[in-house]
């Protein structure tokens, strides 16, 4: 089925950039097991290219090189998590822009991670790589993408008009009461919204990676509380959650934003460094290179 979908899209492609677009879209949605299955379908068996457009600007060899480079890079990412098998997440589209990744196990024993990516609809790495870093038997992931790419300041199309109304809307999508606990994971433009959402929903832990400042003037909207005020008010009431506001040691803008968030909460940010590479905005990839990402996520999200 996955191969048929891939072939259908490839057959309509005119340029190599069209192929890259397909690969990125697959990388933004696939499960770890689907990566393995697609690699086997394309490169282990007797794969035959589908009929292609007459006006395409690439040849068969260039197409297969692009596909192989992409799959091999994705598989390399999976291997960084140092697990013998692909984590058995299955994918279910809950609604437009909302996807649930679960192994189908009993939610009573699990944490539901509500994940908000940045504008690129990734969590600092392709989705299968991030999923491979998580234990499918202990966590489900509800992945919420902002189709407007406006940092969730307008909520979510067709569901909520602001970040303040997104939390109450999520139980209409999924029965969160069946889960043992909730956790939040947000990166980049999804970082601060993930924190706000986690506090609203009573999450047991929230991890923010490279999030924006709660003083960003783009959050100023009539009748809506400023994130900085919301965070201060939550801190005054008392927060019973493990909050991690992380930034890369080589990113001055992210350091400043993390300090802005933490100043509201009365906590200290977490500075992330790596022995593999400079840690700038993307803090998860260097942790993966160091072999530390699964343990980091388990610790910070309380899995």
């Amino acid at each position: 089925m996955l191969l048929e979908t891939y072939n259908g899209l490839v057959s309509q492609s005119r340029s190599l950039n069209d192929i890259h677009r397909i690969n990125i879209a697959f990388g933004n949605t696939m499960t770890p097991q689907e990566v393995v299955e697609l690699e086997e379908s394309l490169f282990v068996g007797d794969y035959t290219l589908p009929p292609m457009r007459d006006d395409r600007t690439f040849n068969d060899r260039e197409l297969m090189v692009a596909a192989r480079e992409w799959i091999e890079q994705t598989l390399t990412h999976l291997k960084l998590m140092r697990k013998a098998e692909a984590e058995p997440f299955l994918r279910r589209d809950v609604r437009k822009s909302v996807t649930l990744y679960s192994d189908g196990g009993d939610p009573d024993d699990k944490t539901l991670i509500i994940a908000l990516p940045g504008a690129n609809h990734r969590l600092m790495m392709p989705i299968p790589s991030l999923l491979q870093a998580l234990p499918a038997d202990r966590a489900d992931v509800l992945f919420i993408r902002d189709g407007t790419r406006s940092g969730y300041r307008q909520g979510l199309e067709g569901l909520a008009s602001s970040i303040d109304t997104l939390g109450p809307a999520i139980p209409r999508l999924i029965d969160i009461s069946r889960y043992r606990r909730l956790a939040g994971l947000g990166v980049s433009a999804g970082g601060l919204p993930s924190l706000l959402l986690g506090l609203q929903m009573g999450s047991g832990a929230v991890l923010v990676c490279g999030g924006g400042s709660p003083n960003d003037p783009r959050w100023v909207r009539p009748g809506q509380a400023l994130p900085a005020d919301t965070l201060r008010a939550a801190a005054e009431r008392g927060i019973d959650a493990k909050l991690t506001i992380a930034f890369g040691t080589h990113s001055d803008p992210d350091r400043a934003s993390a300090r802005d968030i933490c100043a509201c909460l009365g906590i200290e940010p977490l500075e992330v460094s790596s022995r593999s590479e400079e840690v700038r905005h993307n803090i998860l990839h260097p942790l993966a290179l160091d072999g530390l990402l699964p343990a980091f996520l388990a610790d910070r999200l309380g899995l």
Partner: peptide, 24 residues
């Protein structure tokens, strides 16, 4: 701070909007 996927997305956007093909 542009990674390989972002480079691809930039080239895709240029081609889609202008018709000019640039490889990442």
């Amino acid at each position: 701070e542009i990674d390989s996927l972002a480079a691809m997305e930039l080239c895709i956007a240029i081609e889609t909007n202008s018709g000019v093909s640039i490889a990442p």
